[in-house]
Design a protein around this nucleic acid. Sequence first.
RNA 1: GGCGGCGUAGCCAAGAGGCCUAAGGCGACGGUUUGCAAAACCGUUAUUCGCCGGUUCGAAUCCGGCCGCCGCCUCCA
Length: 492
Amino acid sequence: MGLQLYNSLTRRKEEFKPLEKGKVGIYVCGPTVYGHAHLGHAKSYVSFDVLVRYLRYLGYNVTYVQNITDVGHLTDDADEGEDKIAAAAKREKKHPMALAEYYTRSYFEDMDRLNCVRPDISPRASGHITEQIDLVKTLLEKDFAYEVNGSVYFDVSKFNGYGKLSGRNIDQMIAGARVEVSPDKKNPADFALWKKAEPNHIMQWPSPWSMGYPGWHLECSVMSMKYLGKTIDIHGGGLENQFPHHECEIAQSEAANGVQFVKYWVHNNMVTVDGQKMGKSLNNFITLKQAFSGAHERLTRGYNPIAVRQLILNSHYRSPLDFSDASLFAAQSGYNKITETVKALRKAITSDTGSRPDEQIAEQLTQLRQKFEAAMDDDLNTSIALSVMFELVRLTQKLLDDKNTTAATFNLVDVLFTRLGGDCLGIVEQEYPLEGAADSELMNKLVNVLIEQRNEARRQKDYTRADELRNKLDDIGIALEDKSEGTTWRTK
RNA sequence: GGCGGCGUAGCCAAGAGGCCUAAGGCGACGGUUUGCAAAACCGUUAUUCGCCGGUUCGAAUCCGGCCGCCGCCUCCA
């Protein structure tokens, strides 16, 4: 069957076929870096990360491009308003480029923690001004655009495919327009390709029309073309960008090149927090740093970034996802279960090279792998893929209880955890640091001193003392577990 | 006003005409284990898929109506 992807352009699942055999070019709309990344970014970029990972698992040579928007994205509608970066820079009293750099780093940091693979290319809009000017020139030459007072607009009426992605028609939108239309525009749906800057605007560049800056939609077209070609395999982004952003990208790209811009449009759905749209005014706006640390009044604790990732993968990328403390808590428990199982499994793998894997188990593992792949092939059904991981957890625990399980069998199981849970889903790590996550060896030694004290008390049958030690550690978030091979600890 | 989505157990969430007397996770409860716990394991937890009607031999899945929730259309991932 092969990978089926839901294509927003055709509104149905289609078999994925790359333009060039064995190779995939994918462009994903990146963040506008004027603030820390939030839960919405997490859902979006984890979803596309899994797509990229799965394409690579299938053997494709993937080029993953994700832009960084550091200029041109306005705070207001109808191409009026301020530049988001400029506005935030003023607020934080920073140079716009310093602000963009700061939040770009913050973004990568958060994405790293979510275990998202870095894009192959992370182009900045501000680094592609000349290319953007060139595209505007082409559109003017081909009469798809017009200049007014130093600004250039795309003439939507000249491009008859406008609306094909979002299923809208221009007349409808004019009727429903709630915004005061710029007097410069011929048609309310026209959008800015180049904006003339006010003299005090820091970010401005010379162009044939004015000192100014590019319109927001332009950067994606330009950078997509530059790094992946005039027609690309996959373009991803959030559903809210389907209109107008992606619609505008299609218009300007196809008008300029005369060929199809994108073969498969993939859109992921939005998040809500406690059942409502996430917004600063609702006090439910949660950044990733807050989710990881727990520093938000809606959260009772901090959550492991991979647990956040796992929660995202628990539902389908095209379904909306509601974040709540309860859903995060549930994901954290599930994440712990998988992680602890993998750790125990890896501990059980010895250097015994002579053993052979159990054939029945090998057969079961093959079936699990097939179920996983079938789920992922079906438009990335990560919910089922994740359930396979839990089936694997149960099987592993059974094998761990069985003294006859060979090292070779454990190895086979680990291969599945590593390939499916690790490479594809990104929830199983290659290596886990010391017991207790990010803690130092010193910490480990320290806790072991206390464990030794408690075990001494237990030997003396002084259970009051033993329980007191355990409770005190529990209070500071360290859980002790007495196992047949000794007492272990982990952070909660 | 225009466009779209959703409503499945206490909670999250798959399933999209017969394999469903409905995956998986969380939680809860009972058991095994334990000094007691924890973790792990075993078992229980929806005869039913918002409501009402229809199509069909057969519907959670298709159609119609109603109710409820949400999103986009304006910056957002």
